[in-house]
Structure formats: C-alpha cells, structure tokens
C-alpha cells in the first residue's frame, strides 16, 4: 500500500501525517507513507485545498483533517 499526505507544511498537514503514522502502527500493516510538499506534486491530484490524504493514488479526503477512525476506515477500504 502507498499512502501520501499532500500539503505544503501547514500545521494540519503535519497533524495528518502523525495521525496516519499512528493508524498504520495500530493496524500493524506495511505501507509506504510519503509527504508531498511541492505545489505541482499536490496539484497533480487535482487537489486545491490541503491537507489531503491519498491512498493508492486515490484522494480520500482533502481540505480537512480526518479523524483517526476515518483514516482507519480509508486504509481498510484499500486493503
């Protein structure tokens, strides 16, 4: 699995990264977790508001900070 956090370094982007990291650890799955901080990289997903959560190249949430339960659900959807 490949998970990406899109965001140019705002506070919420960092929070989303930490939350997702924790969920991955809780679920005990193996996944790549990447930070995409450059504008062209973020916009390549059609996203204009950050932070955004991308799992296996699908935009799951953008412009908001999803909670842990929600992130867990998105990850399970893709496994």
């Amino acid at each position: 699995m490949n998970i990406k956090i899109l965001g140019s370094g705002c506070a919420n982007c960092t929070k989303l990264y930490t939350l997702t990291e924790a969920v991955i650890a809780e679920l005990g799955i193996t996944s790549e977790l990447e930070k995409i901080t450059d504008i062209p990289g973020i916009m390549a997903y059609g996203v204009m508001s950050t932070p955004a959560l991308v799992i296996n190249e699908k935009v799951k949430a953008c412009g908001r900070l999803p909670g842990k339960a929600e992130i867990k659900q998105y990850i399970l959807e893709e496994t």
């Binding site: 916009m43 390549a44 997903y45 059609g46 996203v47 204009m48 935009v59 799951k60 949430a61 953008c62 908001r64 999803p66 909670g67 929600e70």
Partner: peptide
C-alpha cells in the same frame, strides 16, 4: 491538472469538519 474526483462527505464528516 487532472480533473478532481472528490468523495462526497458524510454528515458526520461535515460535523467533524
């Protein structure tokens, strides 16, 4: 930029937002 296909939010997600 590709066309964005964003998921529709649930009511719960909107309230949390």
């Amino acid at each position: 930029i590709p066309a964005s296909n964003l998921p529709e939010l649930s009511r719960r997600a909107r309230l949390a937002y």
